[in-house]
Design a protein around this nucleic acid. Structure first.
Length: 336
DNA sequence: CTTCTTACA
DNA sequence: TGTAAGCA
């Protein structure tokens, strides 16, 4: 069938179809004499798939790759593309939810005060704007996909530097958390699932979030009954009150100070009312902070005090332990 | 009247 | 993606 018929059948414009061809999403045959496009049933089916993915908000480039996976019947890869899309949608949903809450807040204060609380509005608007910006500019900025292949090996051999005392730290984390049988836990930045694995040994049911699909692939291979999802600290792909505890190891230090605040709020959002938090990561206690500052190191790990203060402000009771120079464990339970 | 390409908003 | 121009 010709382009107009196809366009009407699919409820899109002919221009759009040509546009998809231009982007390499489809390749209809063309008649020799006049270069008219001829759309086969195959083409139509493909177009329908494109439209469906488009309606889910997937970008043209991503649709192209997803289609290749469909062609090769590569179920695994396709699933990751859909999950990636899901994580994008979820971020947007969180964003919109925040804006609704902001709006509600404005309506409420308007009711009470009979006038526009300008500074309040400005503050709220800035807040949601920041959220948007920070969630958008995240991405996979450490290229963990490429590192995923030999991640465990590197952690194991690193021994003396970033992953010094890795095993001990994870074991102590598990000990502090002391999960009850069947408790629901979330590991953020789970990587290949090393910490989550230990918690599952203790009877917890774990979900893992990471921004690298390759990491999650490895993770799922090691722990088939773990639930893995693409996502990050700032937009956890879960609904409210879902977990008994949230853990994170060797990931939190990647966040900026502003992002840390958002991240803790996200954790609290997905946690049940009495849910606990345990963060095991590179941090600087006050002593090290001074010496590090004088040395003028380029990338300073975050400050331990900062985190403790943040948790304190959010009504958490904290305890912490230093494993070595940089490595700390911070455990937090809500006061109420 | 339809489609095609190209350029532009 | 929509619109418009100039062709076949």
């Amino acid at each position: 069938m010709k382009i107009k018929e196809a366009a009407e059948k699919l409820n899109i414009s002919a221009r759009t179809i040509r546009f998809y061809e231009e982007k390499g999403l489809i390749k209809p045959d063309k008649q020799e004499n006049n270069q008219y496009r001829e759309f086969s049933e195959q083409n139509i089916w493909r177009l329908q798939t494109i439209i469906a993915l488009r309606e889910a908000g997937m970008a043209i480039g991503d649709i192209k790759q997803a289609l290749e996976k469909i062609e090769h019947a590569d179920k695994q890869e396709l699933q990751y593309y859909l999950e990636l899309q899901r994580s994008v949608l979820f971020s947007k949903w969180l964003e919109i939810k925040g804006i609704i809450e902001t709006t509600d807040g404005m309506i409420e204060s308007l009711k009470r005060e009979q006038k526009l609380p300008l500074d309040n509005i400005y503050e709220l608007a800035e807040g949601s704007k920041r959220l948007r910006e920070q969630r958008n500019c995240w991405q996979d900025k450490w290229g963990f996909d490429r590192l995923a292949i030999n991640h465990d090996e590197r952690v194991h051999n690193d021994g003396l530097r970033e992953y010094k005392d890795y095993e001990e730290a994870l074991q102590l984390t598990v000990k502090w958390l002391n999960p009850a049988l069947g408790e629901q836990g979330l590991d953020i930045g789970t990587g290949t699932g090393n910490l989550a694995g230990k918690l599952m040994e203790r009877g917890a049911e774990m979900a893992g979030v990471d921004q690298s699909k390759e990491m999650l692939k490895r993770c799922l291979f090691k722990y088939p009954n773990m639930e893995t999802k693409l996502g990050n600290f700032l937009a956890l792909p879960y609904l409210e009150s879902r977990f008994d505890f949230v853990v994170s190891s060797f990931a939190f230090h990647h966040l900026t100070d502003e992002q840390k605040v958002l991240a803790i709020h996200e954790m609290r959002r997905v946690l049940k009312p009495r849910g606990r938090i345990c963060i095991t990561d590179l941090m600087l206690s006050e002593k090290e902070l001074e010496t590090a500052e004088s040395e003028g190191g380029l990338e300073l790990p975050p400050s331990l005090m900062n985190l403790l203060q943040l948790l304190d402000e959010l009504d958490y009771l904290t305890k912490h332990q230093q494993i070595n120079g940089l490595l700390h464990i911070v455990y937090a339970v809500p006061i109420r």
